[in-house]
Design a protein around this nucleic acid. Structure first.
Lengths: 217, 217
DNA sequence: CTCCACCTTGACCGGCGGGTCGACCGCGAG
DNA sequence: CTCGCGGTCGACCCGCCGGTCAAGGTGGAG
């Protein structure tokens, strides 16, 4: 884990620029290769967990040698972080698109919850990798960061609803936690097969929307 | 962590069933030592995660040499399993005690949920260690086993309520997942400080009971 | 007192796996 | 053609950590 300052020696002064991070120039082909690694890693993480996935496994799955990994990523956790951030952006975009701007707050919350369930079901392979140990501080950070983002998104809506009288006053934070928890619980259970997998995803999403709407009443 | 060893004293008692593996004869002092290891491990697991906790750290925390660990546990995951099972038994006992036998199903579910929240808050250090990677199959197994136990406990109550007409029909499994998810979500958020930690635990428990009751209506 | 079972120690071993390195390839620009 | 850079390879290094082991301690039963 030690970044060993022994970065640039010899003649080629590359790597570790003032900014701190890698700013490698990738060709289009390079970007594709990087994506292959990302995809392979996502699958392996989801399958056997982050810690249990060896870098060499990721490379093997992508059909390249281990050394190449470090051409594209400084460390394993950097790859993970990139994966998670990408996922988060896509999910939030989907949520935003699913909420009708003119509906009231509780309805919008329910719409967002339903869409989240659908999205997570559609990308189960991706979201499974969130079941990860938070030992690595870099991991913990990006995960907490995500939790914070979703929290404030939902909290804003809840507070709005309370102001408009469409959601009961008080305990704004708790209501928010409840909504977030419902979405992740149902999604996790579905993904892990604790829910009858033959159920229609849209039916599940509707159920969750109803659950949230009732609890918010 | 008190008198787990009911009254056994003076003579050695068997700690592990003769299932073929370790069936060491521990003296009372030995059982105490073992408990020290268990406690030290629980704290470290909760603090930095299972995978990131080194056996030698556990021993150092308990003030013994590494070799001794293997006198009491075959492997690290065996220790973990023992920890989780113990916890589960205590929680279920608390739940059972909290539910008034003559109340109707939804009320009992809410009572159990509230008690679970209180229990998990009181033993936050213990429950934090459930945030663990499921890479190790032995770990995954004991965790799933626990999920299954709680699931069937709650499902039984929900089905009972549906039969009695106190809970709406249909989707028994989904309702169960919702209840379980609410309890764990609120408990996790509280433990991780995502909820204002100055809130009274009983108030939180009541809130969760209300949340569940509303969602179950 | 002796013996045996339980307890305790820390040096040691083995391999696993993250990260490094130096060499090499192929292509487009000059 | 030659240079430089993006890209690729895989042997190698090395610290870490789970697990082992041989030896020594201690207290109670006989």
């Amino acid at each position: 884990m030690s970044e060993t300052a022994a970065g640039a020696r010899g003649r080629s002064i590359r790597a570790v620029p003032p900014g701190g991070t890698e700013d490698r120039q990738h060709t289009e082909h390079g970007l594709e290769r990087k994506q292959q690694l990302l995809d392979a890693a996502a699958e392996l993480f989801a399958d056997r967990g982050y810690g249990a996935t060896r870098i060499v496994d990721i490379c093997a799955a992508a059909g390249v040698a281990k050394g190449l990994f470090y051409w594209y990523f400084p460390t394993k956790s950097d790859l993970f972080v990139e994966l998670v951030r990408t996922m988060r952006h896509r999910l939030r975009r989907a949520q935003g698109k699913a909420m009708a701007p003119d509906d009231d707050a509780p309805t919008r919350v329910a719409q967002g919850a339903a869409e989240s369930v659908r999205f997570m079901a559609a990308h189960a392979g991706y979201f499974a990798l969130l079941d990860v140990e938070r030992a690595d501080p870099e991991i913990a950070h990006v995960l907490d960061e995500g939790a914070g983002v979703y929290f404030s998104d939902v909290r804003r809506l809840v507070a709005e609803g309370q102001a408009a009288g469409t959601i009961p006053d008080g305990e704004t934070d708790l209501l928010t936690v409840g909504v977030l928890g419902a979405v992740s619980s149902f999604s996790n259970s579905f993904r892990n097969g604790r829910i009858d997998p033959t159920i229609d995803v849209d039916a599940l999403a509707d159920f969750v929307a109803g659950w949230v709407a009732r609890a918010l009443r």
